[in-house]
Nucleic acid binder design. Structure first.
Lengths: 190, 190
DNA sequence: GATTTTACTTACTAGTCAGTAAGTTGTCAA
DNA sequence: TTGACAACTTACTGACTAGTAAGTAAAATC
């Protein structure tokens, strides 16, 4: 018997990476098991169904995001720095690793994933939007950002851009993604 | 024997819809066959491998796009009208049908699709960007658009936004997509 | 009218998928 | 020392996957 260290966490890490690499329909329990040197059933022991596994990945991501944004290191930043922090997540942790956003990955396959997962994706997307929106409103009030229209709509635009931009980076390279980030800033900063 | 009318075209239509609905890994020959009331092998007769089918869908899309943009009905439009035409494709033919963009769909699964498909996706993405870029440059010169930075980067931003926006519409509804389109215009029009 | 070609069906293969039931092993607590 | 429990393995199922080879029927070509 091969013992996995920190089994649940290790499996979640791998599942998250695979989700961002190939999508929900693109990876299997066998992928995870062989990568960890255990049998399929070992993964089913921790996450009985694939839906359970998918939901756990998203729930962990949501928890992590909540922790981050409520942490003083982010919470006390100036709006401009918050923006850079947010962008840096996408650049360093996604684009540079050839990963795409969990949200985008699962929304493309939205019609072929379990309902429980769909709901989780919705909640996650709403939380990201809500944070972005309040950050944008705060920044515009503080005179750091300049844009027309509602903060909610600008937030939706920015998140959509990041999501699509990561996918573009897959086919056309990370430089393109950095260009998009720069353009986002040109369209926002005073 | 059940005969399909316009076999190749009908299969391509269905495959395109399924690609936009569930992604490349989310549909099977069996889906197409049962929908058309024929057997799996009938689809393989027209498109021996799934890669062949995927490539044919993209190639047809590329041809269609070339025809459109070179047609006088689009070519002779003012930049602002060209923009509206382009956006209307995404609103009417995608968002309102719950579909996502072919490019985004296949870029999410980029690492788990055949190489031949990857190349096709790349070419398609570049062609869309090239057209958008020249349209933006033309529009800015004509005084219809206002934006900082390179047209190429603004084009990459807009296409990324549309791509991500369609995916967002899946989870959060089409109204959100329309809001994003409005925000794109606010950030571009004089 | 005979032959070829097109467009399928039948019947199959080998591989993969998520998921399960029953058995094994190591650890820890009483 | 015993018993319970956690974390696996073994061995399997039924469904689905892309893909193939051989056969058939109708239509087009000669």
């Amino acid at each position: 018997m091969v013992k996995i260290e920190n089994s649940k966490k290790t499996i979640l890490n791998l599942a998250e990476a695979l989700l961002q690499d190939m999508g929900f329909n693109g990876f299997s329990y066998a992928h995870i098991a062989s990568e960890l040197g255990v049998k399929n059933a070992a993964i089913h022991y921790h996450f009985p169904t694939k839906e359970d596994l998918g939901r756990a990945v998203i729930q962990r991501y949501r928890d992590r995001f909540k922790l981050w944004v409520n942490n003083a290191r982010v919470k006390d930043l100036a709006p401009q720095e918050k923006l850079d922090w947010f962008f840096s997540i996408y650049t360093a942790m996604r684009a540079d690793q050839g990963k795409v956003c969990l949200v985008g990955s699962m929304e493309v396959e939205f019609n072929s994933i379990p309902e429980g997962l769909q709901a989780e994706v919705q909640s996650m997307h709403k939380e990201l939007l809500a944070w972005l929106e309040s950050m944008l409103a705060e920044g515009r009030d503080a005179g750091a950002f300049r844009f027309n229209g509602e903060p909610a709509n600008k937030a939706a635009l920015i998140l959509s851009t990041l999501q699509g931009g990561l996918q573009m980076a897959r086919a056309l390279g990370t430089k393109k993604f950095r260009d998009v980030i720069e353009q986002l800033k040109l369209d926002l900063l005073v």
